[in-house]
Every structure is written in C-alpha cells, then in structure tokens.
C-alpha cells in the first residue's frame, strides 16, 4: 500500500508514491536522487542525513516521507545559488572543514540553521549546535573555523545588502 505525496525539494516539486514506512532519507536518496545527504547510523546519532524541513534542520532518517507530505525540503544540493557557493560551503573549503566529505552535507545544513538563528556565535555555541553531527575525520576544530568563517561572510554580506538597499 503506497501513498501519493508531494515534496518540494530545493524549490522543485516532486510527486511520488511511497510506502508509509519509507524514511525521508530514502525517499530523498533512492526515489528522488538527492544523494548528498548520507546515512551513517541507525540510531539517530550521527546527523549525516540532516536536511532542512520548512527551514528547520532535521535528521531525515528519523522522519517518514508521508509524515512530511507538502513540506519544503532543502538539501545540500540546494545550498549553492545559481552555481555560486553559499558562504557555508566556502567556509568549509577555505578552512579545510572536511576530509572524506561524508558528514559534510549534514554538517553544513546544521551550521546553516545555527547561523540563521545566531549570526555571531561563540566557539562554545558552535560546538554545542553541532553536537548532533558526528565527524570522524576532522576532529571538529576546522569545522568550527569553517562556521566562524561563514558567519563572518554572511554578516558582511548582510551589511553590504543593507548599505545597497539604502539602509532598509
């Protein structure tokens, strides 16, 4: 028995037919071809599957696809804007915040939510925000730097935008 659902992923609407038990991560990866988010565990610990659901960072291995019918999902594939890297992506490359790259999509999506809520986080705040995302390669230090780097870029972009817009 399958259910017809609609999901908007990175701005593209997808209509698909899924079993009720299909996890969101598998719907994204196997049904729709968004293989950026990854699976690293089966106990909701690692965060490699993190995507944004209506603007919130969620672990997509812990949601059913039918549960989020009608939702807007953003995956790592939706981060770059018209080929231009998001400051988070730039930050990770600039500060060597990734090695094997497997945790990176989830790590960046969690970081993005942090910076949307807290544009100027302290090191402690960054580490705490990322505690739901496991990384085996980096020892986290350069990820912290990457988020700081991105925060700075995003703040200055915002300032520029404000200046361009005549201070609105």
């Amino acid at each position: 028995m399958t259910h017809d659902i609609t999901l908007t992923v990175n701005g593209t609407e997808h209509e698909l037919s899924v079993e009720p038990r299909t996890l969101l991560i598998h719907a994204l990866r196997d049904e729709m071809g968004y293989t950026g988010p990854n699976v690293g565990c089966e106990s909701s610990m690692c965060g490699a599957c993190t995507v944004h659901l209506d603007g919130d960072a969620v672990k997509s291995c812990t949601l059913l696809a039918v549960q989020v019918d009608g939702a807007e999902v953003t995956t790592v594939e939706g981060l770059a804007d018209d080929g231009e890297f998001h400051p988070i992506q730039q930050g990770f490359q600039e500060e060597h915040g990734l090695q094997c790259g497997y945790c990176t999509p989830g790590m960046m999506m969690t970081s993005l939510q942090l910076l949307e809520e807290n544009p100027d986080p302290s090191e402690a705040e960054i580490r705490e925000a990322l505690e739901g995302n496991l990384c085996r390669c980096t020892g986290y230090q350069n990820i912290v730097r990457a988020v700081e780097n991105a925060a700075e870029t995003m703040r200055s972009q915002k300032q520029e935008l404000a200046a361009d817009g005549g201070g609105d």
Partner: peptide
C-alpha cells in the same frame, strides 16, 4: 593548497557506494 576534492563534497556531488544505482 585548498583541496580539489572539496568542490564535489560541499555540493553533495560525491559518489559513495550507496549513491550508485
């Protein structure tokens, strides 16, 4: 030197085993 690998990984375009169909 900044890594050549990063471009595909930060865009979700890496190709790991379970990505293969």
């Amino acid at each position: 030197v900044k890594r050549k690998e990063d471009r595909r990984f930060i865009t979700g375009r890496g190709n790991y085993v379970d990505d293969i169909k």
